[in-house]
């Protein structure tokens, strides 16, 4: 059984620099301890109390409000370069209760409990009548859009066959005429041509593609537009060569270099190709 907390030492201001430091330690902790969805950033410190920790140190017991960013947790982009998801994109908030230990001027999170919740549909409607609202990730239209987008991405001339790893976000427009999805794919050891049996293709470690796609229904069919940014070292998969030709040297992309694959061949951004 835990002993009850001693009386608080002090109630500092929520915007006190030391409290902010503790809050940022908590944000970092939260982002490094979830493997799905998006990175969160600090929006507001709601409450804070400081307790003495025996034999040494202090515990910052805090309530903090976080906001979802557009960077996936597996995306190596530093949090400070990530954009906060806007209200028009149906923002998601995180509420966390955290205890952060301050010892030798270092802040270490001892525990955190968070709940995330999207903004209400009514609130989104107040600022934008035709904004797309978040949809369940297992919605039939969402699943269909992701399948179509992964197929479209693989149909482009990549060196690897990409497998779906996670559906991260989905939005339906008010009249459901289009579906917007965000998902994560990973390259495999199969080339797109020998991926007839995708189950036999093995994912390559620590390489991810972050994709956005829109499926629009139209008379007599549908349009799919997909684009992915791939991080990691994409290996060269040997391609069949005509007799006498040497091995093909395909693009090898250094870790952290984004490859933007839109409609058309993959384009490497940066000098590392």
């Amino acid at each position: 059984a835990r002993s009850p907390l001693p009386p608080p030492v002090r109630d500092p201001n929520c915007d006190d620099p030391e409290v902010e430091q503790a809050a940022w330690a908590a944000v970092q902790y939260v982002n490094s301890n979830h493997r799905h969805g998006y990175k969160y950033t600090l929006n507001q410190i709601d409450k804070v109390r400081v307790y003495q920790r025996k034999p040494v140190g202090e515990v910052y017991s805090m309530e903090i409000d976080l906001l979802e960013t557009t960077c996936h947790v597996l995306d190596p982009t530093p949090l400070e370069n990530c954009t906060v998801r806007q209200l028009t994109e149906h923002a998601v908030e995180g509420d966390c209760d955290v205890n952060v230990l301050k010892l030798d001027n270092q802040f270490v999170v001892s525990n955190a409990k968070c709940e995330s919740s999207p903004d209400s549909a009514e609130d989104v409607r107040k600022i934008c009548l035709d904004c797309a609202l978040l949809a369940p990730l297992n919605d039939t239209k969402v699943l269909h859009t992701v399948d179509a987008a992964v197929a479209a991405f693989n149909a482009q001339n990549h060196t690897s066959y990409f497998k779906l790893l996670e559906i991260s976000r989905a939005q339906l427009t008010p009249l459901h005429s289009s579906v917007y999805v965000e998902f994560v794919v990973g390259p495999t050891d199969c080339s797109p041509k020998d991926a007839a049996e995708p189950a036999a293709c093995n994912l390559l470690a620590d390489q991810h593609g972050f994709c956005k796609a829109t499926l629009t229904e139209k008379v007599g069919g549908e349009d799919v537009a997909a684009s992915c940014v791939v991080f990691g070292t994409v290996p060269v998969v040997p391609q069949p060569q005509p007799d006498g030709a040497g091995p093909t040297v395909g693009p090898t992309v250094a870790a952290g270099t984004p490859v933007v694959a839109g409609p058309g061949p993959a384009v490497a951004v940066g000098p590392a190709v």
Partner: peptide
């Protein structure tokens, strides 16, 4: 211009400073 602050009989010593919480909103409130 308004003169000295009036003294309220029976008023005790100044209350302890109330911590300023919640803190600032960095983006927007959901």
């Amino acid at each position: 211009a308004l003169g000295p602050k009036p003294v309220i009989p029976g008023a005790g010593p100044a209350a302890p400073a109330i911590p300023l919480c919640p803190g600032r909103i960095r983006y927007f409130k959901v």
